[in-house]
Amino acid sequence: MTRDNPVARRLEPAVRLVAIIGGWWLLGLAFLTCVEILCRKLLNVSLQGVDEIGAYTLAVFSTLSFAYALLVKSHTRVDFLLAHLPGPLRALLNATAYVLLAALAVFAAWRGWWVLEESIEFQSHANSPLGTPMWLPQGLWLVGLVAFAISATALALHAAWLMLTDWRRVNRLYGPMTIEDEVETEAGAILARGPVEEFRA
């Protein structure tokens, strides 16, 4: 999608960078977990709170990745019936799907802001040994939701505009992931490199 879609193409670099930063964080947390396991077992000390950081990590890593998955059309749709519908109707449904997803994304970001605002108002600190100030993980989590909302809104506006001007492009740019796209996302790297060595038993 990012290749053909002008909106997605503009958003991609920033969104991709965020996803990569999330990946380094995830790997960093994996290392931290190993340190915790070894410390606990061999040195009899616990860092205390790696599980808590891990829980925040899932929330933050996921929302930070929402926007990227959106740009590469990975958010799942059931396209079974859609494929059998006439073009204009399909375009209308495709555009509607993006408008409604944007509505969900914006609403989630707005309600997410509410969560953060309450944490700031109450000066909430996790009642755990780590005592994390809640605005910290929730703020990062909200960044992901907001990025998702912005990307989804941009795509929805674009899809709606195309619906009025050139509905055929809606189906091209906002149709469900084709099988090729899907395979590309889920197994692209494996397919691209081929087998490591030609196999001859």
Binding site: A19, G22, G23, L27, F61, S62, F66, Y68, S74
Partner: peptide, 16 residues
Amino acid sequence: HDCFIATATLTAMSLL
């Protein structure tokens, strides 16, 4: 980085 991107995509898809 390729691993991270693939992980991010699949995680986002599942977690949403």
